[in-house]
Design a protein around this nucleic acid. Structure first.
Length: 269
DNA sequence: ACCACAACCTGGCCGC
DNA sequence: TGCGGCCAGGTTGTGG
């Protein structure tokens, strides 16, 4: 579910709720959500630690702890973090519950794809990720160098987190539309000009989505149950058959790299 | 090295 | 109402 704008929104809202707080207790209802090290060690290391900060890398949230360590979570498709100042009973999809000084974080995940990690070295978990698209280190030149070696469809490449971290199905489709590039174009056939447009479009779309608090369909929720509104601004995503916002041609739908893909056949060549 | 695809889970929706 | 089939915002392992 959540892509970079949603995870970043969650991060920002989590900070005032959890930073400076101590992890008093963790209740682990479904141990398989802990990917590393082991459920027992995870609990042993995290319980009693104080949260010093919340960071983000791609779609991962990193809770920086003292004593030294990081609690890391990836929400995958349907993971949610919910803050409660009281102690409501966990529902049947709550797999992990963090008790803090003055409230609790409920981790819910209907599909159970999400994973938690504890590590002293975050690169063990996030080391495979490519550059952050909103950082100055990510340049069109570097992007072009990587794309020139790949002939998979550009849509599939945008979903490859080693290339650039944080894009998912929504923002890949939206960015390709803004850049005017057909999702099936092979990476190594894009001109430098097109790559520059795409580089710009990715940043513009992510920043726009961030301002809207992300996109909310059924399962993405922020810690305080607010919803993102960016879905109202989607140009192509899940708008099959509706008019392209630029030229009016009906938006088309296809499947690329096993993922649902939306584009304007006229604006995207 | 690269790429396509199944697998991991559950629930919602659609058609019969 | 019930059942089968398909779909879902992500990642990983397998096999070609």
């Amino acid at each position: 579910m959540p892509e970079l704008p949603e995870v970043e929104t969650i991060r920002r809202e989590l900070i005032p709720l959890v930073v400076g707080k101590k992890v008093q207790e963790i209740t682990l209802f479904w141990p398989a959500v802990v990917a590393r090290p082991t459920p027992d060690l995870f609990l042993q290391k995290a319980i009693g630690a104080q949260i010093k900060g919340v960071e983000r890398r791609g779609k991962y949230l990193l809770w920086r702890l003292t004593p030294e360590g990081y609690l890391i979570v990836h929400l995958r498709m349907t993971g949610q973090l919910q803050w409660y100042s009281a102690s409501p009973p966990p529902d049947k999809h709550t797999h992990l519950l963090i008790h803090l000084d003055d409230g609790q974080i409920h981790y819910r995940d209907v599909r159970k794809f999400g994973r938690w990690y504890w590590t002293t070295d975050p690169t063990e978990v996030v080391g495979h990720l490519g550059p952050e698209p909103l950082s100055s280190e990510w340049t069109a030149e570097e992007f072009a160098r990587t794309l020139s070696r790949r002939r998979a469809p550009i849509k599939a490449l945008l979903l490859d987190q080693r290339l650039v971290a944080g894009l998912g199905n929504i923002y890949a489709d939206e960015a390709l539309f803004v850049a005017g590039i057909h999702p099936l174009r092979a990476g190594n056939t894009l001109s430098l000009r097109e790559i520059e447009q795409l580089h710009r479009a990715i940043r513009a779309v992510l920043e726009e989505a961030l301002r809207a608090g992300g996109s909310t369909f059924s399962t993405y929720q922020r810690p305080n149950a607010q919803k993102g509104t960016y879905q109202q601004q989607h140009r192509v995503f899940r708008r099959t058959g509706r008019p392209c916002p630029v030229c009016g041609t009906p938006i088309e739908h296809t499947r690329v790299a096993g993922r649902s893909t939306h584009f304007c056949p006229r604006c995207q060549r």
